[in-house]
């Protein structure tokens, strides 16, 4: 069984989703120790977090044993709070405090221990059986961003993994050719990492969420740091 299933404890009074819970139980049994976290959102979805070493086998089991043959997508996520905040330089936007870069990383549903996660969604589209789907997640340690490629199982994962490699710098072992997909080959950095800066925003501060441009005859509201055009 899973070591940390937060489903039962978290939502005692919420509506239950028997179908998904039954599926979760079946999958947890089939995958055994590989499952390290899970989450059921009633009527919305099922999340399973597996260990990195069991990633390929988990996908294989879900595909072959449960018949989830439709490959929806694969991507990554960087859970670090952005050191740049949301580039809210104007005083009007400071209602929301900037995230503390030293705070521990909060991860999403089904938990997580590391900064980077890979997730993919598979679905079963057979009829008349109901449309079922699952999101699989895996943690990647910061010092070793690599995971086994699932291209042998789903040929369609090829481009998704290339995109993930380009955007997050996650290496997929056994991928037939990790080349740039979107960006020119001389591009440096991994844009979807949270610490990748948007230079245009750094050099030209965002003037504010609400329009605070003073009228020509009016004095500027506040102490003048609201207008962003002069930086």
């Amino acid at each position: 069984m899973a070591e940390a299933t937060d489903t039962a404890a978290e939502e005692a009074q919420a509506p239950r989703d028997e179908e998904r819970e039954a599926l979760l139980a079946e999958m947890t049994e089939a995958l055994g120790d590989a499952v390290v976290g899970s989450h059921v959102a009633p009527g919305r979805g099922l999340w399973l977090r597996v260990t990195r070493d069991a990633w390929y086998d988990a996908v294989e089991t879900v595909k072959l044993r449960f018949g989830f043959t439709f490959f929806d997508f694969l991507s990554g996520i960087d859970w670090m709070p952005s050191p740049w905040g949301r580039y809210e330089d104007a005083a009007v936007d400071t209602g929301i405090p900037r995230p503390d870069p030293d705070a521990p990383i909060e991860t999403g549903v089904a938990g997580g221990d590391t900064r980077f996660q890979v997730f993919c969604r598979l679905a079963d589209v057979r009829r008349p059986a109901p449309h079922r789907n699952v999101v699989l997640k895996a943690d990647l340690p910061d010092d070793d961003l690599r995971i086994r490629s699932i291209v042998p199982l789903f040929a369609g994962a090829n481009w998704h993994e290339r995109e993930c490699w380009e955007m997050f710098g996650i290496t997929f072992d056994g991928h037939p050719g990790l080349r740039h997909l979107y960006l020119p080959s001389e591009f440096e950095g991994h844009p979807l990492r949270k610490d990748f800066p948007l230079l245009a925003r750094l050099v030209k501060p965002w003037p504010g969420i609400v329009d605070v441009e003073p009228m020509p005859d009016e004095a500027a509201p506040g102490d003048g740091d609201t207008a962003g055009g002069d930086a």
Binding site: Y182, L198, A200
Partner: peptide, 8 residues
């Protein structure tokens, strides 16, 4: 205008 890949 703030994208990393678009020519301004």
């Amino acid at each position: 205008w703030d994208s990393y890949s678009v020519t301004k």
